[in-house]
Design a protein around this nucleic acid. Sequence first.
DNA 1: ATCCTGAAAATGTGATCACAAAAATAATTA
DNA 2: TAATTATTTTTGTGATCACATTTTCAGGAT
Lengths: 231, 231
Amino acid sequence: MGNLALEPLDRPEGMTTHEYAHRRLRQAIMVGSIRPGESLTIRGIAEAMESSPTPVREALRRLSSEGALRVLDNRRIMVPRMTADRFSELVSLRAVLEQHAARRAVPHITERRIDRLEEIDRAQDEAIARKDNATALLLNQEFHRTLYTANPEQVIMPMVESVWLQLGPFLGIAMEHVAQLYFVDRHHEAIAALRKRDENAVAAAIKADISEGIGGFERAAIENLLRLAGQ
Amino acid sequence: MGNLALEPLDRPEGMTTHEYAHRRLRQAIMVGSIRPGESLTIRGIAEAMESSPTPVREALRRLSSEGALRVLDNRRIMVPRMTADRFSELVSLRAVLEQHAARRAVPHITERRIDRLEEIDRAQDEAIARKDNATALLLNQEFHRTLYTANPEQVIMPMVESVWLQLGPFLGIAMEHVAQLYFVDRHHEAIAALRKRDENAVAAAIKADISEGIGGFERAAIENLLRLAGQ
DNA sequence: ATCCTGAAAATGTGATCACAAAAATAATTA
DNA sequence: TAATTATTTTTGTGATCACATTTTCAGGAT
């Protein structure tokens, strides 16, 4: 198991070991630094982060419940392989889920939060300008998360994150084989709609952002990319 | 922790202990036989099913990732309390999610599977007729699951099940305080639409089934029910 | 060379133990 | 009697160990 993939992370005081392991693995998967098909061993991870099998196993179980990992019949654990079909399924689900999340957020949004969204968007534009894909990706996620969590009753966010998590490994592949991820940015449109509290317009902007962004990959391009990556 | 709530379950050969614990707890929560707010202890559960803390902890972690359980700051684990707001959020999410799942299933549906759906629906009608709420509930879930899993690429089903799981405890309360759960049955309508491969009609039937079924509870009724149950 | 076979190493699983934190109970004080 | 403190019990957590299964690999047979 590549130790490079598992970069150490800040560990706030009081955080349990299994929680730390979960966050670290999650992050690695989310940004696509673990190869799909690569199988993870409990002991390997435990050693890599200087702990023991017990908490690592708990972290892996959680991640498999979140769809980030798959448990094989051999009981071996791996990052699921991406297919064109699965990709299409994930993207369409993402669109539906996030449109809904956006709609339900609108009644709770404050001007204060919209300002914060603008700020995040500016930072993302800067990251894109200096071709810092990883940061741009993270800021894009933060934009969406900041919007949806305006709704205080959170049942959707974990599912949205689950979809992101499942899409992560593909992004890793894409970043490797495509020189520059091109970001579509319908965020300005979303912000304008938010200022007017126009649910339909917000939902439309989010839908466009997704379907022209990650959803913009043509099926043929996906298959090509996956073939190149040896999936 | 009430041992009554944890009825023994079939344990197929080769099933691991943590998997068995997960299924058993999941089932108990799904049908609402564990009180919201009731806190679960690892050792208590381990003793109740004659195993040890390790696998039980793994099961609990999975269930908390599935939204079925909540981990408090004390690290105590409990079934989350229901509120009117959360309920509304869950029901609207359920409608969106399942409409989408139904749409994506239509292209893959076979006559054979539609026959099976009819059969399940008949069985459910019988269960309703003899006022067997628990069985009717389970058969209703099986109807929906059988429809959605026509799509071979399954990324939505775990999320649908997560919503069911989160609604489960409320159903337990409802069954206790309402003499008879009244089931709305738009299944015939869905089946007819499926025969015609009419995606929009299928989605409409599912939406109606949900919003007139569990979604039919008025907000005032919910609040009343929750107050009665001491939530 | 290719396929089989058996030994060795690696791996997942679950029980047990020690430790620290939290909760419950008993004892003490105002 | 009520509030506070001290003690005991309960509980979550994580490391370690033993066992069974799987994987890996070396050596031999066809």
